[in-house]
Design a protein around this nucleic acid. Structure first.
Length: 339
DNA sequence: ACCTGTCAAGTCTGG
DNA sequence: CCAGACTTGACAGGT
């Protein structure tokens, strides 16, 4: 089983490469010349896209094939007060450049819209805002020229005191969206509300792939071991999403592997928080448990030290290999689990 | 150069 | 019913 690792949003190794520079609404409102203020926002977005490309080049240099882009590329773009603003044409070329690079170098990119994208909400306005937010992310992927193997990962949302009803509402409100958005979604179990099993059943119902977060499952487990759910989770990657729509079977060269999230608890007092680095042992135990089920898997490292945590993990895995673990380090971003 | 409070957005809890 | 927690990187405004 080939395992590819990736990291989130920013690099702690690169200087001057923030992909999420911003401007607050407070500052924007203070600027007397609105046209000039909008030009400033476009300028910030250009910098963010330039740095996103820089980060992708950093990925290529390291051998990393998995990267989550930040949601903050265009500041304030989904803000109520900027509804009339259309910055996309001015940024189209830079989006295209980012997308081309990702495609040429086989880097699987994705987004993770923030926690106020809540499709289970009972509030009409929150639902509408969530769609606006998703539309923004999907639009960026479209401008990058990336097919819908490039996805947006979200959570089910709040429970509002009745998880069953809220889950049903998620399904109804999810189904009411445009296909171009629905086809980009993956669903992840969260650390407080919808467990892995609950998220899995909803993923099956609406026909989207499920991203299993091992750490969230550890702190919000339900009754099942993660690997017990794995067969069904893997099936969501076969029967829905990019693979299913294009008739791609596991083992085909263009097969999109399932994705999981990995992080380690920050401390005993804050078990839900993300630690600086990830514990290789816990990760390996999970990978061994599922090694026979799939030819490949992609693992997103969610650690405070970002790309440095990925580098450290690779070093730890090299050491494990030297000590006889049944793995083979391939390059700076991937290993093979021997079975 | 460095430090601190604040930021557009959501949900949940406790007072 | 409202204030604060949660969580995060970066701004904004101060020293």
């Amino acid at each position: 089983m080939i395992v590819r690792f990736g990291f989130v949003a920013m690099s702690v190794q690169l200087e001057d490469a923030s992909p999420s520079r911003t401007m607050t609404m407070a500052t924007f409102s203070k600027l007397a010349d609105r046209e000039a203020a909008l030009r400033k926002l476009v300028q910030i977005a250009e910098t963010n896209l330039h740095n996103t490309l820089k980060l992708l080049k950093h990925c290529r240099y390291m051998g990393v094939k998995l990267y989550r882009m930040t949601s903050k590329i265009i500041p304030l773009v989904t803000h109520e007060q900027l509804k009339d603003w259309d910055p996309y044409p001015a940024l189209a070329q830079r989006f295209a450049d980012v997308g081309s690079f990702a495609r040429e170098h086989g880097i699987r990119v994705s987004f993770h819209p923030d926690h106020f994208t809540v499709l289970s909400t009972p509030r009409e306005q929150v639902y509408r805002n969530s769609i606006t937010e998703l539309d923004y992310h999907v639009r960026m992927l479209e401008l990058m020229g990336l097919d819908d193997w490039a996805t947006c990962n979200i959570h089910v949302g709040g429970s509002y005191g009745d998880k069953t009803t809220s889950g049903q509402r998620f399904i109804t409100q999810f189904n009411a969206m445009e296909d171009r958005i629905k086809h980009r979604i993956t669903l992840e179990n969260d650390d407080k509300t919808f467990t892995a099993l609950e998220t899995l059943r909803i993923s099956e119902e609406v026909g989207v792939p499920m991203v299993l977060d091992i750490h969230h499952h550890a702190v919000n487990p339900g009754d099942e071991q993660a690997h017990e759910l794995w067969t069904d989770i893997l099936r969501t990657w076969e029967r829905s999403g990019w693979n299913a729509r294009n008739g791609i079977r596991m083992g085909d060269p263009s097969w999109l592997p399932p994705k999981i999230h990995v992080s380690s608890p920050k401390s005993e007092t804050d078990p839900r928080g993300h630690a600086d680095y990830v514990d290789p042992e816990q990760l390996l135990q999970f990978l061994y448990a599922i090694a026979g089920s799939t030819a490949a898997i992609d693992v997103m490292i969610e650690a405070k030290k970002k790309d440095e945590a990925l580098v450290k993990l690779m070093a730890d895995l090299s050491l494990a290999e030297a000590n006889g673990a049944p793995i083979r380090v391939i390059d700076g971003g991937s290993i093979e689990v021997l079975s």
